[in-house]
């Protein structure tokens, strides 16, 4: 066991996968010599050499297309895209090829591969460096979408993703890379997809979050506790597959729900969760479900970014609103 942050936990997962499975190959821009723009692959290039940890030309579509070919051909590529905004040039490969090959070949060809994408705002980065496009990927049939919010989950979910027989979009909350430390086992382990974690039990309102928003939501739950409101905090961990059962159970228990996402509001993943709740357990609700989201704007740059990213205060306000009825 060692106390690690999320970046180190992911590094550990990649290291153990490269070590135990000779078909695993890490590829992306600057992942080798310099250890990636977030230093997540730090040291792996030296340890495993340039054939296993491959620095590619600047070409996201090329990275994903090549990884796709490798995956069909029997390797286990773990591709890195530097920032979510730069996954868009690769979107054709992801949506038209990676996600569909199993279906269009009726299982004859498959693409077991992982696409790691740092995502989200909150560090005052440049344009295109702060996107939260998880809904676009979750909306693309044939992709699993995973979002860790803690070092332990980051390692376990990534190893699960590498072991998965299908393509996995693995989203890494940029803001949390180095802001949370946790004891993480040295040995490999997996965290299953489709199992939400109850991060805090509570009786009054269910707060549903994933990725970077889990931290804000936990903060909000502290504040609510101080006001005597018991919030139950769910960390979804994977969006596809989605652990709807845990959501429904929790909402049936509390009768109130707030869904939190950093992404823009319209057609965001929160909307899917709200739909699941109303379809399955509308009558257990004591109040309308609230969403706390980013806005339908481009993520503002550094000076105004804070107006966009949901914070604990907004989550608290939404939770209070559900308590009014």
């Amino acid at each position: 066991m060692a106390e690690l942050n999320i970046a180190q936990a992911i590094n550990g997962a990649l290291g153990s996968a490269l070590e135990s499975d000779p078909t695993v190959i890490v590829l992306g821009e600057d992942v080798g010599a310099t250890g990636g723009v977030f230093r997540v692959t730090d040291g792996l290039g030296e340890r495993f050499g340039p054939d296993r940890v491959v620095d590619t030309p600047v070409a996201e579509s090329g990275i994903i297309g090549a990884a796709f070919g490798m995956a069909i051909g029997g390797l286990k590529p773990v591709a890195e895209i530097q920032f979510m905004g730069f996954s868009y040039p690769a979107f054709d490969q992801i949506a038209n090829h990676v996600s569909r090959i199993r279906n269009r070949s009726r299982h004859r060809f498959t693409a077991p591969m992982v696409i790691r994408i740092p995502y989200g705002a909150g560090i005052g980065a440049a344009e295109h460096h702060s996107e939260s496009a998880e809904a676009i990927y979750a909306h693309t049939p044939g992709l699993k979408v995973v979002v860790p919010a803690s070092p332990y989950d980051a390692k376990g979910l990534l190893l699960e993703a590498i072991a998965d027989p299908d393509p996995v979009i693995f989203l890494e909350p940029i803001r949390l890379y180095r802001s949370i430390r946790q004891l993480v086992p040295d040995d490999p382990y997996t965290v299953p997809f489709g199992v939400a974690e109850i991060r805090r039990p509570g009786n009054d309102v269910t707060l549903i979050a994933y990725g970077a928003m889990v931290k804000e939501t936990l903060e909000a739950s502290e504040k609510l506790a101080a006001e005597g409101i018991g919030a139950e905090v769910l960390d979804l961990r994977s969006l596809v597959p989605l652990d709807a059962d845990t959501i429904i159970e929790s909402v049936e228990h509390t009768g109130r729900a707030v869904v939190i996402q950093e992404a823009p509001r319209t057609a965001g993943f929160a909307t899917e969760i709200v739909s699941q709740i109303q379809e399955r357990t509308l009558y257990s609700l004591a109040a309308p479900i609230q969403r706390v989201t980013g806005w339908d704007t481009v993520v503002p740059l550094r000076r105004a970014e804070h107006h966009f990213v949901p914070d604990a205060a907004r989550i608290v306000a939404a939770a209070r609103k559900t308590m009014e009825s």
């Binding site: 600057d30 010599a33 310099t34 620095d55 030309p57």
Partner: peptide, 10 residues
Amino acid sequence: AISMPRDRQT
């Protein structure tokens, strides 16, 4: 290109 030399680019 960040850490990539020109001869690894093309």
